[in-house]
Structures are given as structure tokens and as C-alpha cells.
Design a binder for these strands. Structure first.
Lengths: 329, 329
DNA sequence: TTGTATGCGTTATCAT
DNA sequence: ATGATAACGCATACAA
């Protein structure tokens, strides 16, 4: 009748079941225990509504079944689709996910790594271009899209192949002069390879191309200037554009439309990421689709791999092309 | 020279600094300690690179500075914007966030609540329509968009006011016959009030209206049938539509366009949520914008409120209207 | 196979 | 103000 003020512990279960503490622990952890004892303990657990205290458990244990995920933000749909897929893959393996938004700020990233380590996470999956990120030896770190060296496994989409595919699709659709548009950090990272693949495909096909690469922080209007320079007699110098992300493709399409040109009739555009409206409706543009689920599963397998030393240092997963209205057919 | 194999503990810091264990604890927790001791301890902490073990801390402490967030998914941009805002609000208060995707499945929801409780979270913020969700007495539960009764605080946008606003804006833009379209659970929840507000505004203005409400799980094509029934001589019976979400507005706009009608010239559409392209670009349609940040901050304030009994049972936060191309002007 | 005892890293309650 | 010590809940090595 009196409200149980205190949460039941193993000791309470042991008393209730009339067995020893250690026996309860074994039942809870699935270790061999006599059949009758097991039933008694399980009944007591249900009766008392006993829940294991993961803090007490984590104090001794080396594993906490918790993984931290560091993302620049949870606004960009590509990032959230990664978080979603990682979360599902972790849940399937009985792991919890701590999510940290870093705003790509090195200070934030480091602070969050420290928070995660205090939480004794089993590992960290991060999307960061921070050169100097320091992680303790004990924690497995998996990087998405940034190669930190052989010691830290990196998971990425096949950016080089994706760049090629984008150029090939545009050429296949009749384009004869392509442009590559990018804005972003100068730091070495995997997405930079999109340009290399693009160039390789253009050269293989003997197609003319133009590059416009802006530093991170440059005003987006610089692309407007660029388009203006290449606009003569009512048409652009190029008839196909590969934008480094879908988000940029969206903005470029808007600019081009405002110039009075039609997409895809006058200019075709291909983006990169595979972002869909409302997450699962139409693609926002014709695009190179990143294999988000495969990437997430790979990250999770590797971060949970007890023998981290055996992890490869770079895994590139295959991309695909999807029509999204900004190319012909 | 030998690699420190074991992580330093408070005991190590105490030995290094030549003080007692308790003193270190006080320094770490900002309790009053003699100036000289404090410096010595801090130096030792830095020298050993000591990090507090939150599992050991959580074992004794009643607070763990961790809050669980249960969302139907991390695909819908409205949900992810909530998670993002909640995460930032929690981080600002020094709290960690555990994220669980439930797929709105009652079993998942309950399982995740249990996981969260094992993790001894300080509270749970959830978006669930589950009638029977059971949460232990000790944990504060805050609900978004679903009123569970006076004991569980609910945070929502002003759904009634938003419904009114949608109708008013359409009428203001010249509409004379409105339609309200909704698909979703029949269970009592706050978003249902969008309809009531809509009706109230229509009646106040003496404007004709039509409702079409589908059960969750009904095929979306039923709306196509509905539109067909109201299509005569190249025009629809109504000239303004309020859709219960932006996602639905997107699909309805597509249907209407495919019928050969123009949006907004022939039919104007208003959605609800305030979803933006790529999270921070254009609105996907003219819409009633939910005050996501205010909602998140309210949830966090309440979930962290030590005196949970003083929390209100329902907080409705004001919405606003945003133009997104599917209305005139 | 089951029970007992010890320790994990921290906080909190004591004396000092 | 500081130092010693007893919990906290569980896992585990060890004794029965």
C-alpha cells in the first residue's frame, strides 16, 4: 500500500526470489542457472518491475553499448538521413545513440568528443573536417567523408565514381559543354574527388568543361557572377552543370530560371546526395544518390568491431543515378 | 615511457596533487576549496588528462544530465528540426540527448522508454500518440502534440489558431470556397484542432467549406478521387485548400497540377509545419509555421524542471504564416 | 550449480 | 576547510 519510493535493485529481486545476489545477476545476463532458480528470479523481476541500472553496470563493464554520432547539423536532410540510418543500425545491435550537433566548429567537435568519452561510449562516428580532432586511444573513431590517415577508418560514397557518373549522364543526355560548381572547405576530404571523377569523364569523352570552385564562406552570389560571365546572346556557354550537392543544385536551378533559361531544356543540372522531398518523396533534382543505408551499416559494423585494428582505412560505397526533373528523361 | 594503460581516476589525481580524494571531488564539482589546493588539483587534472567518469557519477547521483527524445522518425524534416532544436536547448543546459526512432510503433515506443529508463535519464520528451505508454513515476515525461491528461505536460503549436490563420489567409487572398484535407490517426491529439480552427474561421467569415478526412493507412489516391468528384467544367468546386501538413500540401499540389490546374492562380494551397527546402532555404509551400525553437525550449525547460508538479498541462505556442508560392502574394 | 565477498569511481557524511 | 570512509548497484572471482 505504501508507494515504493525506491527503485528495486538486484538485491531486492534476490530477497524476493529467495536466492543470492549473484544468481540474479546470472539470470539477468543469460548465464547458466538452474531451471527452478531461473523461474523464481524471473517471476520476482516481473513482480518488482526490476530494471537493470546501466550506470552501475557501466561502472565495471568495458562496454556501454552506447555510440556517439557527431554531425555538423540536423538541418541538412542528407545528415539527418545518415543519423536515422545509423540509429537504426545501432538499435538493431542493441546500442544506444548519443547525437551531437557540432556546427562544424572545431571547438564544439572537441568538446563533444570529450563529453562522449566521459560517457564511456564504445565508439564515435563523426562527420568532421577538423584536422586536429583528438580522441583517446581507447575509443574507436569512424569518420564519414574525411580521410584522417590509415589509423582512422573512413566511410564514404564513391565520390570519384559519382563525379564520373554525373558527367557521363549529362553527356549521355546530349550535353556538349559541362560545368562543375562547388563551394566548401579547401581541406582534404573525400567529396573533393567528385571533381576529379567529373574531369576524368569529361576528358575521356572529349567534352569541354569549366570549373568554378568557391571557398567556404564565399557569397553564393559569386555563382551568379560566374553565370553572368558565361551568358551570351540569350544562352549559357554550357548546357550541363554538375553541382557538388543537391542543395547547391536547387539554388543554381533557381538562379538559372531567374535568368530566363529553362531547366532541363536549355541547361541540365545534376546534383549529389540523393536528397528527397520530405525525406521520402521526389528527388529534389536529378542526382547522384549516396548509399546512405550501406554507409550507416558499414560505420556501425566498424565502430562495434572489437578488433578495430582490422578495419580498413577507407571504404567507398557505390552510388547510383536518379532522375529528378533537372535532366532530359 | 610506458603507455598508461589505465584511465586516471580521482584517486590518481589526489595522489598526484598530494591531497585527499574528497578534495578532488569538490574541485571538480566547483565546491568551496582552498585556493592553493584548487590550483594543485587543477594542475594534476591537466597533467594526467583526467576525465570524470559519468557512469560512476551516475551511480550515486540522482541526476544524469541526460534526456531521451522519442520521435516517430528522423526522415520528416519537421521532426528533425524539432530534434535539432531540442538538442541545442539541452546542450545549452549541459545535457546530453539520447535519440530514439519509434516508427510510431507502440511496441517500439514502450521498449525505448524502458531503455531510456535503464539509462536513468532525467526525463523523456516524446512525440507519440500511444494511449498506453507507461513511464515510471520517477521520470518526467513531456509530450509534444498529444495531450495525455493533466499529469503529463503537453507542448504544441497553437493548432486551433493555426487552422484559423490558414483559413483567414486564404479568404484574405480572395478564396470563396475552401477545403480542408487531412490524413492521420483518429486518436485524440492536438493537430486535430487545426480542423476546428479552420471551420471556425470559415463560419465566422460566412465562407463555404468542404472537409475530407482520411484514416491513417488510407491510400493517398483517395484524395485524387475526392478532387475528381469536385472537378466540373475544367475547374474545382473550391479555390483554396488547407492541408494538414506541408508534406500533404506538396502531394496535393502535384495532383492539382497534373489535373491541368494552376497553383496558385486557380487554386491556392496552405500547408502546416513550416518545412523549408534543405532545412533553411525556401518554404515548400505557403504555410503555417510552427514555432519549433520555442516548442523545443519549452519542452527542455519543463523536462528539466525539478518541480515537475508545477508544469502546466498544456502549452500552446503561437504560429505564424509564411508565403511559399502556393498562395497569391 | 549457487552463494559470498570484493571492487569499480564517485559522492556524501562524517570526524578532524 | 580538509581528509577518511561508507555507500551506490552490479559483475565476478572465489569459496562452498
Amino acid at each position: 500500500m505504501a508507494e515504493r519510493k525506491t527503485v528495486p535493485t538486484m538485491k531486492d529481486v534476490a530477497r524476493e526470489a529467495g536466492v543470492a545476489l549473484g544468481t540474479v545477476s546470472k539470470v539477468v545476463n543469460g548465464l547458466p542457472v538452474g531451471e527452478e532458480y531461473r523461474t523464481r528470479v524471473n517471476e520476482a523481476i516481473i513482480k518488482l518491475d526490476y530494471r537493470i541500472n546501466s550506470y552501475a553496470k557501466g561502472l565495471k563493464a568495458t562496454r556501454t553499448n552506447t555510440v556517439a554520432v557527431l554531425m555538423p547539423n540536423l538541418i541538412n536532410p542528407f545528415f539527418t538521413s545518415l543519423v536515422s540510418a545509423i540509429g537504426r543500425a545501432l538499435a538493431a545491435k542493441g546500442c544506444r545513440m548519443l547525437v551531437y550537433e557540432t556546427d562544424s566548429d572545431p571547438g564544439m567537435e572537441q568538446a563533444n568528443v570529450i563529453l562522449a568519452e566521459q560517457q564511456k561510449v564504445d565508439g564515435i562516428i563523426c562527420l568532421s573536417y577538423n584536422q586536429n580532432l583528438k580522441v583517446s586511444d581507447g575509443v574507436t573513431l569512424i569518420s564519414i567523408d574525411r580521410y584522417f590517415g590509415t589509423r582512422i577508418p573512413c566511410v564514404a560514397s564513391d565520390n570519384y565514381g559519382g563525379g564520373m557518373l554525373a558527367a557521363e549522364k549529362l553527356i549521355e543526355n546530349g550535353c556538349r559543354h559541362l560545368a562543375f560548381l562547388r563551394i566548401g572547405t579547401k581541406l582534404t576530404n573525400e567529396p573533393i574527388k567528385r571533381k576529379d571523377g567529373f574531369i576524368a569523364a569529361c576528358e575521356a569523352a572529349g567534352i569541354e568543361y569549366t570549373l568554378k570552385i568557391l571557398d567556404d564562406g564565399a557569397p553564393f552570389s559569386a555563382f551568379g557572377d560566374f553565370l553572368g560571365e558565361h551568358y551570351h546572346d540569350g544562352k549559357l556557354d554550357f548546357d550541363g552543370i554538375f553541382c557538388v550537392t543537391d542543395s547547391m543544385a536547387y539554388l543554381i536551378k533557381k538562379m538559372i530560371t531567374e535568368m530566363g533559361l529553362r531547366v532541363p531544356e536549355d541547361v541540365q543540372i545534376v546534383g549529389y546526395d540523393g536528397v528527397q522531398m520530405f525525406g521520402d518523396l521526389d528527388y529534389t533534382c536529378s542526382t547522384i544518390v549516396q548509399p546512405v543505408q550501406a554507409m550507416a551499416e558499414t560505420c556501425v559494423d566498424m565502430v562495434l568491431n572489437p578488433d578495430g585494428a582490422k578495419n580498413p582505412s577507407l571504404v567507398c560505397l557505390p552510388v547510383s543515378y536518379a532522375y529528378g526533373g533537372t535532366t532530359k528523361a
